[in-house]
Design a protein around this nucleic acid. Structure first.
Ligand SMILES: [Zn+2]
Ligand SMILES: [Zn+2]
Ligand SMILES: [Zn+2]
Ligand SMILES: [Zn+2]
Lengths: 159, 159
DNA sequence: TTATCATATGAGATTTGATATCAATTGAAT
DNA sequence: ATTCAATTGATATCAAATCTCATATGATAA
């Protein structure tokens, strides 16, 4: 933890940014909830618990800054709010997500399974891939028993 | 064209909805721009050209309705606006998109290349897939010559 | 035709996520 | 201590989307 805060501090100063108390509080919240996919509002509420004087705008600015430096990653699951998570260190691409349409849980596929498909895209479409996004929407293993008609769940969801 | 309007009219009445003039105008705009990925605002402006009296709320309501009936598909490319496109007839899953980070063009991979990966997801994660979203972000073949440092393009983009 | 009634519509208000503005504060470097 | 740019917090603003509600429409029955 202290380790990673220090590392982030270095990444910031390498770009002439300081790790202010507000930024540090925000970073710590992100680290403490690394397994989740928090929205800006989520982060704001959690940061306020330890640093009540912080403003919402500062949280947004900090998230944007960490995003610019590719320390964290902005995600959009189509539910109207941007979410944030740490980038796996050294990971070139983003991992994949499994979103349950019944309970909303977000599980992850850490490995990158798209290698062969990316090769094909670059070749057949002459398209130079920088990043990708792969999300599966469906019923998670925890919900599979209580959902009878999955077809009803798709409807007007944004994908 | 008339063919497809009639077909949609039937799909609507099968669910006790009428193809009102406003809905028909909206459907025709979607059909006439099938190759694009229009936002609600785009649709609104185009519909207004032929039916100036239409209200924005009606366009939103119509798009939502067509979405509910899975006649069209709601898309989210992370740029803050929801986009709409016709669902390929009979297509269970949605096709894939190539989004150019330089010019914003959206190209399509019509075939579904995810079959093997989906099998793996269902097996390894016990996750029942209903739909998926696969988007590649990068440099399209039209832009590849004018972009020198693609790394700079990723930054804080939402994915 | 006229009355009835559920459905659909348009204008505008409201909500919500996110960004911009700007005066005040901080803090590093003289 | 002085300076000066970076940062912050409160608030205004913006845009997308939804909600409200009075009115309009259109099918049906008398
Ligand atoms: Zn679930
Ligand atoms: Zn994730
Ligand atoms: Zn391009
Ligand atoms: Zn498409």
């Amino acid at each position: 933890m202290e380790e990673r805060v220090k590392q982030i501090k270095q990444q910031l100063s390498a770009h002439n940014y300081k790790l202010t108390p507000q930024r540090e509080a925000t970073v710590r919240v992100l680290l403490e909830n690394e397994e989740d996919h928090l929205s800006a509002e989520d982060v704001y509420l959690l940061v306020k618990e330890k640093a009540p004087e912080i403003g919402l705008a500062t949280v947004y600015r900090t998230l944007e800054l960490l995003s610019d430096l590719t320390i964290i990653h902005k995600l959009n699951f189509g539910d109207g709010v941007t979410r944030y998570e740490f980038r796996a260190e050294g990971a070139e691409h983003h991992h994949h997500h499994l979103i349950c349409l019944n309970c909303g849980a977000v599980d992850e596929i850490i490995d990158d399974w798209l290698g062969p498909i990316e090769k094909r895209v670059e070749k057949e479409f002459d398209f130079q891939i920088i990043d990708h996004r792969l999300t599966f929407h469906g019923i998670c293993h925890r919900c599979k028993d209580q959902v009878k008609d999955p077809g009803k769940l798709v409807g007007s969801k944004v994908t």
